[in-house]
């Protein structure tokens, strides 16, 4: 079973990645692919690649709300008893994964990059320590939960359609006694530049160390005539605006070239830039996960390399 994620009437691409994987595993087990759709039933039209859509409708489920989702999903799990629950390893999965693991009594694997059955055992590969280590774990028992990294599986397995059987599940009483409420949806700021529209990006990570050092990166970006983007810690430190953040909670970019300086390549960052045509990474750590996705890499210190690059682009 897959938990469908949706905002503003649109089912996420990640949901289709999970349905594709669920269908593959269901074929191994000889079972059906089910999707839990919490919220407007009309969205079932976008879930045609599933066999069954289990729908819970309630005003509290109009937008994602952690407690409402947890109670509704627990009810669906109790009624449908799936072998496996798949969610994104993003906000929704980080909210619900381990709570449902306790309440539904099922082991959880997070940061999942691969998943399959091995001799009857459910085995997950988790990218731990920011992608520096792959932990292969077994999820024992009759049911399990996996929160899956974006982009781990292909979304191709038939988006759209509308042929799924729809089952309604009555909302549990807990939805009328919630201890939280949604006050407002806050849209992202419009930026001065749209990094998602750029042909090339110079991107900087925590390896830059200080705000003052950012100057050399800005010089390079200026010399190339492209925007400066960043990993999350640079934005969290307040050195660049949120609109420059690449990754899961920032923007997804697909430039013709992505130049990464001092970025380790944590899964949440890779999710935002893996589609770039050419990725060149500068990182002093030869074991940095960014080199697993980059086309070209160098372990030269960025503080030595960047001035040389500026020099060559100027001449």
């Amino acid at each position: 079973m897959v938990l469908a994620e949706h905002t503003a009437g649109q089912v996420s691409e990640g949901t289709h990645e999970l349905i594709g994987k669920a269908a593959e595993l269901a074929a191994v087990l000889g079972g059906a692919t089910e999707v839990a759709l919490l919220g407007p039933r009309a969205l079932a039209d976008q879930l045609g690649d599933a066999d069954v859509v289990v729908c819970v409708e309630h005003p509290a489920l109009a937008e994602y709300l952690p407690e409402a989702y947890e109670e509704a999903l627990l009810e669906v799990l109790a009624q449908r008893s799936p072998r496996l629950l798949l969610m994104s390893n993003a906000t929704v999965g980080l909210d619900l994964g381990s709570a449902l693991s306790v309440r539904w009594e099922a082991p959880l694997a997070a940061y999942v990059a691969a998943l399959g059955f091995d001799d009857g055992a459910l085995v997950a590969t988790s990218k731990i320590l920011g992608g520096k280590v792959l932990a292969e774990v077994e999820l024992p028992g009759e049911r399990a939960i996996a929160t899956v990294l974006g982009g781990a599986f292909s979304a191709g397995a038939g988006e759209g359609g509308g042929g799924a059987e729809i089952l309604g599940v009555a909302p549990p009483a807990a939805l009328d006694a919630l201890r939280m409420s949604l006050r407002r949806v806050v849209e992202p700021d419009a930026g001065d530049v749209d990094i998602a529209a750029a042909d090339m990006l110079v991107s900087v990570g925590r390896g830059i160390e200080t705000q003052d050092n950012l100057e050399i990166m800005a010089e390079l970006a200026d010399a190339l005539g492209v925007p400066l983007s960043a990993s999350r810690p640079v934005v969290d430190a307040g050195w660049l605006p949120k609109t420059r953040q690449v990754g899961q909670s920032g923007l997804k970019v697909k430039p013709r070239a992505y130049l990464a300086f001092g970025i380790s390549g944590a899964p949440e960052h890779l999710e935002g830039m893996r589609g770039a045509e050419l990725i060149v990474a500068c990182n002093t750590d030869p074991g940095a996960p960014i080199f697993g996705i980059a086309h070209y890499g160098t372990t030269v210190d960025l503080f030595d390399l960047v001035p040389e690059l500026v020099d060559r682009v100027h001449n």
Binding site: V137, E138, F291, G297
Partner: peptide, 18 residues
């Protein structure tokens, strides 16, 4: 989850190192 084994991801081999 029960650990089976730990692996180093393949960071070498993909990127051509300059």
């Amino acid at each position: 989850p029960v650990p089976r084994r730990m692996l180093q991801p393949a960071t070498t081999g993909h990127a051509e190192m300059l």
